[in-house]
Simulated scan of single mutants.
Amino acid sequence: MLEVRDLHSGYGDAHVIRGVSLDVAAGEVVGVLGRNGMGKTTLIRSIMGLAPPQIRAGSISWRGESLIGLRPHDIAARKIAIVPQGRRLFPSLTVTEHLTMLKAARARSGWTVERVFALFPRLAERRNHRGGQLSGGERGMLAVGRALMVDPQLILMDEPSEGLAPVMVQHLEGIVLDLKREGLSILLVEQNLYSALAVADRLYVLETGRVVHQGDAATLARETKLLFQHLGVQ
């Protein structure tokens, strides 16, 4: 479904993404791991058409159609949604307003407000609270719920576990697996190795804008466990 080939992008004179290639198939969760400054967010912004960065070479295609040069709202219209780093909510808007800005409250097909509330009962309880009044976990739920309101087939998640308590990270992992069972494809950018291993089918590791490792998550999980055992880490 999503194919990125030999992508180069960056900001001004800064060449951040250096020849990245990756794929996300239908109904697959693909993780992108890496430390801060390795190009993960630049990759997500390049796919979504957000400026900056500027794409210098390579290709990004969705269902065989090039996304390069399309505006973000045109990409969203192709059923691609984003959960941005930091959630990017509006402090003055209520939970319900965040959800209905993308689809009318009366909508009865696809993802609806009530369907999002069924997935996130806590948001239903907070439906009249403003974005600035929500906890970190509630903001994370709302960012995912807002993305679902475009009825996506692919969701780009940029550091969704950032700043969350461990119990909320586990809850988020359960939501990602629920969405996978719904048939959604997810490109998950994470620093949290264990969270990514808990949900991803395959993983790519970025270092200074390049893919330095890729493979299925189960194999990486076994290798990580053996390494930690060797080092005496529980």
Rank of each mutant, 00 (worst) to 15 (best):
M1Y: 05
G131D: 03
R35N: 08
R63K: 15
E125V: 01
A143K: 08
A107R: 10
T96S: 10
G132L: 04
G34K: 09
V4Y: 07
E65D: 13
S185I: 00
T112P: 01
G12K: 13
D201F: 05
S135R: 09
L184P: 02
L231P: 09
L226T: 11
L206E: 00
V144H: 06
L134A: 05
L227Q: 15
G145A: 07
V20N: 13
A26N: 14
R181C: 08
L67W: 03
A81R: 10
V144F: 03
S109L: 06
Y194T: 14
R5T: 08
R127P: 02
G58Q: 02
V150E: 06
N128Q: 14
V32E: 01
L99P: 14
G215A: 06
W62M: 08
A118M: 07
R181W: 01
G58H: 00
T208G: 10
D6C: 11
R210N: 09
M149T: 04
L231I: 00
R63S: 13
Q214F: 08
R56T: 07
I82E: 15
A217I: 04
M168D: 08
A198H: 10
D6V: 08
I47Y: 06
R146F: 02
A14H: 15
H98M: 04
A57C: 08
M38P: 14
S185Q: 01
V167L: 15
M38F: 08
R126A: 03
V169N: 13
S61N: 13
R139P: 11
G136P: 04
Q133Y: 00
R202K: 06
N36Y: 00
R71V: 02
L231Y: 08
Q133C: 03
R126H: 06
A198E: 03
H171D: 15
Q85C: 09
I155V: 04
L193T: 12
V176R: 12
L2S: 14
A105F: 13
L177Y: 06
P121K: 04
H129K: 09
V29I: 14
G12F: 06
H8M: 08
G58W: 01
V167T: 15
G27R: 05
A147M: 07
I68V: 07
A81H: 10
A165K: 11
D216C: 08
N128A: 14
A124L: 07
R210F: 04
Q214P: 05
P160K: 11
D178M: 11
L227E: 14
R5H: 11
P121V: 01
R71N: 09
A26D: 10
S109H: 11
K40S: 05
A200F: 05
E190W: 10
T112I: 00
R78P: 00
R87T: 01
S161Q: 01
E190V: 01
E65N: 12
A81M: 02
V233T: 04
A107D: 00
L50I: 11
Y194S: 15
E125N: 10
G69P: 04
A25R: 15
Y11G: 10
P160V: 00
F120C: 07
T100L: 00
V30F: 03
R181Q: 14
R63G: 15
E182Y: 13
M149Y: 09
H171E: 14
N192P: 09
R18T: 02
E138S: 09
P72K: 07
P53H: 05
L184S: 02
A124H: 12
S21W: 00
G136D: 02
L193H: 12
D201M: 04
L172A: 13
Q191H: 11
L67R: 05
